[in-house]
Amino acid sequence: MNNKSDISIKTSECLKYLIISSIMVFFIEFQVEASGSLEDKIKQAFTAYSQAQQATKREARMENFQRAQYLFALVSKQGIEAAALYTNIGTAALQAENLGDAVLAFRRALEIDPDYPQALQNLKQARELLPAWVPKPIEDSTLDSFFSWQRSLSTAEQSGLAALLFLLCSIGFAISIRWELILARNLAFLPLLLWMVFVVSYIIDITTNEGRDAVIIVDDTIARVSDSANAPQRFSQPMSAGMEVKVLEVRNDSNWAHVSLFNGRDAWVNFASLAYVDAPN
Rank of each mutant, 00 (worst) to 15 (best):
3 N>K: 01
4 K>E: 02
6 D>T: 02
6 D>S: 07
9 I>K: 09
11 T>R: 04
11 T>S: 03
16 K>N: 06
19 I>E: 14
19 I>G: 05
20 I>A: 13
23 I>R: 05
23 I>A: 11
24 M>E: 14
24 M>T: 13
24 M>R: 12
25 V>T: 10
30 F>D: 15
35 S>Y: 11
35 S>I: 09
38 L>H: 05
42 I>G: 00
44 Q>F: 08
44 Q>S: 12
46 F>M: 15
46 F>C: 04
51 Q>P: 01
54 Q>H: 07
54 Q>E: 09
58 R>W: 09
58 R>V: 15
58 R>F: 07
59 E>S: 15
64 N>D: 11
74 L>R: 09
75 V>I: 14
78 Q>A: 15
79 G>E: 09
80 I>H: 08
80 I>A: 10
84 A>C: 10
85 L>T: 07
85 L>H: 10
90 G>R: 05
94 L>S: 03
98 N>M: 09
99 L>V: 06
99 L>E: 02
99 L>I: 08
101 D>W: 06
102 A>G: 14
104 L>P: 09
105 A>F: 04
105 A>T: 07
107 R>D: 04
108 R>H: 10
110 L>Y: 07
111 E>W: 05
120 L>V: 11
123 L>E: 02
125 Q>P: 02
126 A>Y: 01
137 P>E: 06
138 I>R: 07
144 D>G: 02
145 S>D: 12
147 F>P: 03
148 S>G: 06
149 W>K: 10
149 W>L: 10
152 S>W: 07
154 S>R: 05
155 T>G: 10
165 L>N: 02
165 L>E: 12
166 F>M: 15
168 L>F: 01
171 I>H: 00
173 F>T: 13
175 I>Y: 01
175 I>W: 04
180 E>P: 00
188 A>N: 08
190 L>E: 07
191 P>R: 01
192 L>I: 00
193 L>F: 13
194 L>H: 02
197 V>W: 03
200 V>K: 10
202 Y>E: 15
206 I>M: 05
208 T>V: 13
208 T>N: 04
212 R>S: 08
213 D>W: 07
213 D>R: 10
214 A>I: 12
215 V>T: 08
217 I>Y: 02
217 I>G: 02
218 V>Q: 03
218 V>W: 01
219 D>T: 03
222 I>M: 06
222 I>F: 09
224 R>W: 04
226 S>C: 09
229 A>D: 13
230 N>T: 15
232 P>Q: 08
234 R>F: 04
235 F>Y: 13
239 M>A: 06
245 V>G: 00
246 K>Q: 15
250 V>A: 01
250 V>I: 15
250 V>G: 04
252 N>H: 11
253 D>C: 05
254 S>Q: 14
257 A>C: 02
259 V>P: 05
259 V>N: 01
264 G>A: 07
264 G>N: 05
266 D>A: 08
270 N>A: 07
272 A>I: 14
277 V>Y: 06
277 V>D: 03
278 D>T: 13
278 D>G: 10
